[in-house]
Design a protein around this nucleic acid. Sequence first.
DNA 1: TTGAAAGCGTTACCAT
DNA 2: ATGGTAACGCTTTCAA
Lengths: 362, 362
Amino acid sequence: MKRKATALDVAKLAGVSRSAVSLVLNGRGDGNVALESQQRIREAAAALNYSPNKIALSLRNQQSRIIGIVSDQVVTSPFDGNIIAGADAVAREHGFVTVVMDTELDESRDESAVETLLDRQVDGLMYVTVGLRPLHVPANMARVPSILANCFDDRPEAGLPAVIPDEVRGGREAAEHVMSLGHRDIAFLAGDSLTPAAPRRIEGFRDAFSGAGMPVTQDRVIQVGWDIDAGFHGAMKLLEGVEPAARPTAILCANDRLAIGVVLACYRLGLSVPQDVSVMGYDDEFRIAKAMVPALSTMALPLREMGAAAMASLLAEVGSAPEGTSDDGGPAAAAVSGAARETLVPCRLVVRESTGPVPAGR
Amino acid sequence: MKRKATALDVAKLAGVSRSAVSLVLNGRGDGNVALESQQRIREAAAALNYSPNKIALSLRNQQSRIIGIVSDQVVTSPFDGNIIAGADAVAREHGFVTVVMDTELDESRDESAVETLLDRQVDGLMYVTVGLRPLHVPANMARVPSILANCFDDRPEAGLPAVIPDEVRGGREAAEHVMSLGHRDIAFLAGDSLTPAAPRRIEGFRDAFSGAGMPVTQDRVIQVGWDIDAGFHGAMKLLEGVEPAARPTAILCANDRLAIGVVLACYRLGLSVPQDVSVMGYDDEFRIAKAMVPALSTMALPLREMGAAAMASLLAEVGSAPEGTSDDGGPAAAAVSGAARETLVPCRLVVRESTGPVPAGR
DNA sequence: TTGAAAGCGTTACCAT
DNA sequence: ATGGTAACGCTTTCAA
């Protein structure tokens, strides 16, 4: 296979001009080019395995049908990759391709990543983060239609639309789930406040209590961090050496890794899950939550949906939906708050085996 | 900020011709352009915030200083993202940028992903996979310098260079680590044979036994899968209801998730780790191995190094190292087997708290 | 030392 | 209906 055929090659082979080739191959042949020529052109193109040079196209048309995705660390960290998967799927449906650049959490690379993408004439830009977080959007992002997924810019002037999970609702529904199983003494192991996710989930947790007309047990909410060991030690503090009647009967965790630590602690103390204490995760992490022993009840983050909703909305702004299906504006359940242009996507309760009825007598 | 400045804008502002601008800005000004003009050109460029249009450059030069990375699922899965991080770091050092496309494990998208990248004039291509695996390289990859990271093509005709971890050595050194702690009855929970990683690690495990002049205890090697529950049930089979003297004193796992399951089982059975049984993982998974309770001894996969070595080697083939540091051929420890052009990168033993001396009397 | 012109591969306009 | 030509932004060669 040698150098690729150009439109000129096709034109020569078909015995016509370059313009004719262009017209025909772009569907604007009828009424402009003789039917017989059209036929010859198509044959020639097929014979030469011709496809237009995308670089030349971009230069000419000032657009590329490429959406650039810049991520803080979703490529290189284990988390949230499905946002990109969801975004990519929608882009492909509409005849766009996505191209990803990861800054590995180095904000000084933000601008240059965006610049590189812009240099390549991307038609739109999406910024994706691991974990919900506030962000200072790179200034040059404003040069093309752009959107934020799993992050938001709280400076009023930088009003980029954002698609984020409904964390407070997630926290509330998690609490409501164990409440519906009869639990009243519920603890919440809540990550830290470095990400807004934890405070929002705590807020939902509190909402559930007020909603149930129950007092919010202040000291049952502890912020310990996000990893297995944090969950372990947090649970130990809650359970070790305390008499059964004073133990929380359910422990909600701000992610699945904490839940692993909690289960570890329970087993170490000879406690059964969920017979003695119910444990709930958050995130529904791939091959973690489902594979745990016992399989973790959890609040699934709507990663794919977020990516898909963000891309659908971005593409609508980019305009031109020539190749894809009609876009009717994303998931029906999503709510948009007018001013800030934030789309909240609901989390999904997943009930497995780590939560059960409250122990008798509690 | 309106439309970007072009070379013509700079030329006009400096009162010279486009060619002069090009010459000066590409360092070929001396001896061709009057010093005074050079100065004016540089000032004009700075004033207009000029940078050459990359698309036009690519079209003109038939190259882009972009390396395309196609991944089977490293973006969208939680694993092995550091291969890309390592590759990207090296590329950036040399003035290249990387652009990633993930096929989400859909092999029918391989060709078109490569095609898209090729259309964009990438100067080189890297195929990266999650977990060591054989692969049928997309045919069109051969059109530019290419390399495989964490995968290999075993068809003799498709001789692309590959950078992979030295799994058999990893398996051997893992076994040797616990042997050095006095363990003799060692079990190996070994994933499955869907990936060549497990068989190779098993081979290394066996090598360690022959090396120590010990009989290979056949029934101590069990292939159970890769997830927490598999580790849990595997360990249960090994430990539950068997008298202490008949228990393996160390359990090696083919990944860290299995090790979590094993520890879970130990705790459930009232066994301590590492006092009663030593447990070892594999992979050194980010925020898993280190965060476990106890922190997992493990065999770290050299992900970053693999990505870096692969990129260094690819860039050497692409040629032209104008902007970066000199490349001296990757990690010193890597071994290249001439014919197949496979580079084996050694894993790294990480000793933490889950392995300890063999219990007294065993 | 400088500038004009060709060419990279397209598409779109405008005479023919 | 057709094909020539300009334009996208750049680099490079060649003549002045």
